Simulated assay, not measured.
Amino acid sequence: MIQHFQYKSMYDNKQLPGWTFSFYFSGKKYEGNYHKNGSIEWTSHEPPAVKQEDLKKQLHELMLFHVYE
């Protein structure tokens, strides 16, 4: 489960899409960029391959809730 999720706009002009995010999972901090097309670019180490798809789904849900509400 994702904990301590945070996000912010990549650009000063908040109308431009693109966000940076960070969260903790299993005691490790992960960071990345969430692009307007829904793609995720990890800027820290990547989560374990077996958990990556589940984490991506959770990230999409969180971003939809917070950014596109």
Rank of each mutant, 00 (worst) to 15 (best):
E31S: 12
Q15R: 05
E41H: 06
E61A: 06
S39K: 02
H66P: 07
E46P: 07
H4G: 14
Q6M: 04
K36T: 13
F5I: 05
F25D: 00
E46W: 08
Y30Q: 08
G32N: 14
G38A: 10
L55E: 03
Q6W: 04
V50S: 15
V67P: 07
E41V: 05
S39A: 10
F21C: 01
S22C: 13
W42T: 01
G38H: 03
Y30T: 06
K57I: 08
K56L: 01
L59T: 04
V50N: 15
F21I: 00
G38R: 02
P47A: 12
P47L: 10
G38E: 04
Y24G: 05
Q52S: 09
K28R: 11
H35A: 07
Y7W: 06
G27E: 12
E69P: 11
P48N: 15
P47V: 09
I2H: 00
Y24T: 09
F23V: 05
Y34A: 00
H45I: 08
G27D: 12
K51R: 13
F23G: 13
Y11G: 08
A49G: 09
T43I: 09
P47F: 13
M1E: 12
L59R: 02
P17V: 05
V50D: 15
Y34H: 02
K56E: 02
F5D: 10
F65G: 11
M1W: 06
K36I: 10
Y68M: 06
L55H: 03
P17G: 09
G32E: 10
L55C: 03
H4F: 13
S9H: 03
L59P: 01
D12V: 14
E46Q: 14
E41T: 08
G27I: 09
Y68R: 10
E41Y: 06
F21H: 01
I40Y: 07
K57L: 09
Q6E: 04
K29Y: 00
E53G: 01
K28M: 11
W19N: 06
D54R: 09
N33A: 13
I2C: 04
G32D: 11
S26I: 04
M1D: 13
E53F: 00
H35G: 01
K51V: 10
H45A: 13
S9M: 01
S9T: 05
Q52H: 05
N33C: 13
K8Q: 11
